[in-house]
Simulated assay, not measured.
Amino acid sequence: MNTGTGGDETLLLAGLAACFVAVALLVVAVASLSRAGSAPDWARRIDRYRASRDDDEAPGERPHPARRALAAGEWTVRSGEMEDRVAHRLDQAGMSLRPHEWVLVRVGVTLVLAVAVTLLSGAAFGGLLGALLGWLGTRAYLASRTRRRLTAFSDQLPGALALVAGSLRSGFTVSQALERLARQDLQPLGAEMSRAVAETRLGASVEDALDKVADRMVCPDLSWIVLAVRIQREVGGNLAEVIDTTVETMRERTRLRRQIRALSAEGRLTAYVLIALPVVLAALMMLMRPDYMRPLFTEPLGVLMLVAGVVALLVGWVWMSRVIKVEA
C-alpha cells in the first residue's frame, strides 16, 4: 500500500512539474504572439533580421527565461533546416508568429495534453497518446487555418478581378488597378495585394509580384491572369476582356463546386459522426469511469487493443475522406 501511494505521489509531482513547464512555455508563446501582432508589418519584417539576443542586454547578465526558451526554439528550427518551410506555412495561414515561436506553442500544447491524459489515465502510455494528440492537433489547426484562408482568397478573387477589369477600362494601368484593389477592405486578398504593391515599389515587376501571390496562395486562377498580363505586354490586346472571360469561368466553377459540396453534405456529416463517436465516447468514459478504462493503458492486451483501434480509426478516416471528396 505504501509503495503504491508513493508511486502515485511521484506521478502527481511529475505531472505538476510538467504542467508548470508547459504553462510557462504557453505564456511565453502567447506573449510573443501579442508582441508580434501589435507591431506594424514593417517592424515585424525588420525584426526577422535581428539577433536572437538583444543588444541592450548586459554581457554578464543572465538571460530571461522567456528569452532562453525563444532562443532554444530558434536554435532547434534553424538546426533542423525547416525554418523556411515553417515560415511559408505560417505565412499562408496569415499568422504573425515566427517559426521558433510556433514550435514553442506546439511544444507547450503537447506537454499540457500529455500531462492531462497521464493524470486522467494513470499510465505513462496515456501521456504518449496525449503528446501525439497535442502535436498532431496543432498541425491540424495550422492546416485548417491555412485551408480557410486559401478558400477565402479564391472566393474573393473573381470580384477583385472584375474590379481590376473595370479599372483598366477606365484608363488605369495594371499597377494602378492593383493599388486600388489593395485599398479595398478584403481579407486576405487585400493584404496579399498590398504585399504585391509593396514589392513593385521596391523594383519588382507586376507579373513577378502577382506570381509570388499565386504561389503563396496556391491559386492557379491567378497564375492564368499573370500569364494573360505577360502576353498582353508582349503582343498587345484587350486585357480587360480577357480578365472578364476568366472571371466568368471562375464563377461558373465556384457555383459548380458549391453545388457538389451541398450534394455531398450528408456523406460528410456521416463521416464526421462516425469518426468523432469513438473519440468522444472514450473521453467521456475516461472522465466518468477511469477505472474501467485503465486496463487499456496498463495491460499489454489493452494497449494492443487501443493501438489497433486507433489504426482502424485512422484508416477509416482516410477511406471516408477519399469517398466523400469530389474534385470540381
Rank of each mutant, 00 (worst) to 15 (best):
A198R: 13
T173K: 09
L163V: 05
N2R: 15
A124C: 05
A31C: 11
V164C: 12
R62L: 10
D41G: 01
V112I: 07
L128D: 07
A312P: 00
V318S: 03
A51E: 09
D155M: 10
W317T: 10
E199T: 02
Q232L: 07
L304A: 15
E252W: 04
W102L: 01
V21P: 01
V280P: 00
R147L: 13
M250K: 06
V109R: 00
D244V: 02
I231W: 08
T110V: 08
R169P: 03
T173A: 08
L90C: 13
M286A: 06
V213T: 11
C19I: 15
P290I: 04
A14K: 10
H64L: 06
D215C: 06
L129S: 01
W317L: 12
V323Y: 01
D8A: 14
R322D: 01
S194L: 09
T110L: 13
W102N: 04
A93R: 00
I260C: 00
T76G: 09
L16N: 01
A262C: 09
R230K: 15
S205W: 02
P158S: 12
A58Q: 05
L133Q: 01
R233C: 09
G94R: 06
I275R: 04
E179D: 12
R45F: 02
D55H: 04
D215A: 15
M320T: 08
P158Q: 12
S321Y: 02
R45H: 09
M293F: 03
R233P: 03
W42L: 12
E179Y: 00
D41K: 02
G137F: 06
T110C: 15
L178D: 07
L129C: 04
C219N: 06
H88P: 00
I275W: 02
Q92E: 09
R35L: 10
L142Y: 04
V117S: 00
R98T: 08
W135P: 00
E207W: 05
V273T: 08
L11E: 12
R45C: 05
L306N: 03
V218D: 15
A36M: 01
L97M: 14
S32V: 01
L70G: 03
G203T: 10
A165R: 00
A24Q: 02
I231C: 04
V273G: 04
D55R: 14
S121G: 07
A209S: 15
T246A: 12
A51M: 07
V326K: 04
P65T: 03
L222K: 01
L161M: 13
V206R: 02
D56H: 04
A140P: 03
R195K: 11
V109P: 00
E81V: 04
S52A: 08
Y292I: 10
S144M: 08
T146M: 12
G15M: 05
V226K: 06
V226P: 06
T245K: 15
G122M: 02
R183S: 15
A36Q: 03
V315I: 15
R169H: 08
A18M: 15
L97F: 05
A140W: 13
